[in-house]
Computed example of a mutant assay.
Amino acid sequence: MKTLLFLAKGVETMELSVFVDVLGWARNDYGYNTEVVTCGFNKEVVSTFNIPIRVDKVIDEINVDDYDALAIPGGFEEFGFYEEAYDEKFLKLIRQFDSKSKIIASICVGALPVGKSGVLKNRKATTYHLKDGCRQKQLNTFGVNVINEPIVVDRNIITSYCPETAPEVAFKLLEMLTSKEKMEAVKVAMGFKL
């Protein structure tokens, strides 16, 4: 099972790392088939707080049929996150994953491009909930039924409302890719409580 981890400019490093670590532990320590492929608009993505990250693929190289899931960490507007997260190439990629009922897992404002793509219209989701709920209001403008809960799953799409939820989103993705029992084995091994 292959997960495409999309890194827009200004991506939050904590939010991207959980996907790498949880799926990496599953693959390395348990032999699960949980490969992660990083992707961006350029071979080097500059994350929030100016940490450069070299990615495996650029967006133009991606064939959706090669992947089982799409993971979308959030990022900071001040570091240019929405410039790439809202790019039509990326929105089209999100639509392609959803049209094939592939898993889409987002953390925090990673839900906003999912909403902007149109795939969450009349569906339940959440996003960043603090600072007067401005991001949840923004998500609502895309026709989304916003639920103010830490993690919301609507069929194939996982959304969450802040960085604190990041590990749980990665574990939910692992569960959807494998099974609850396999996810729980990794979760306990990583020191998290069930």
Rank of each mutant, 00 (worst) to 15 (best):
K57G: 13
K57Q: 12
K57I: 13
V58H: 02
V58W: 00
V58D: 00
V58I: 14
V58S: 03
I59W: 06
I59A: 07
I59H: 08
I59P: 07
E61F: 09
E61K: 04
E61N: 04
E61D: 12
E61Q: 12
I62R: 11
I62N: 13
N63P: 09
D65Q: 10
D66P: 11
D66F: 13
Y67T: 07
A69K: 06
A69Y: 06
L70V: 06
A71K: 02
I72L: 14
I72W: 04
I72Q: 05
P73H: 08
P73V: 14
P73A: 08
G74R: 02
G74M: 01
G74S: 02
G75H: 08
G75F: 07
F76V: 14
E77F: 00
E77P: 05
E78G: 11
F79H: 14
F79K: 15
F79L: 11
F79Q: 15
G80R: 11
G80Q: 08
Y82T: 03
Y82M: 12
Y82V: 04
Y82Q: 06
Y82A: 03
E83P: 05
E83A: 10
E83S: 14
E84Q: 12
E84G: 02
A85E: 05
Y86R: 05
Y86V: 01
D87K: 04
D87C: 05
D87H: 09
D87I: 01
E88T: 11
E88S: 12
K89M: 01
F90A: 02
F90S: 01
K92L: 09
L93C: 07
L93P: 08
L93Q: 06
L93I: 13
I94F: 03
R95G: 11
R95Q: 15
R95M: 11
Q96N: 15
Q96S: 10
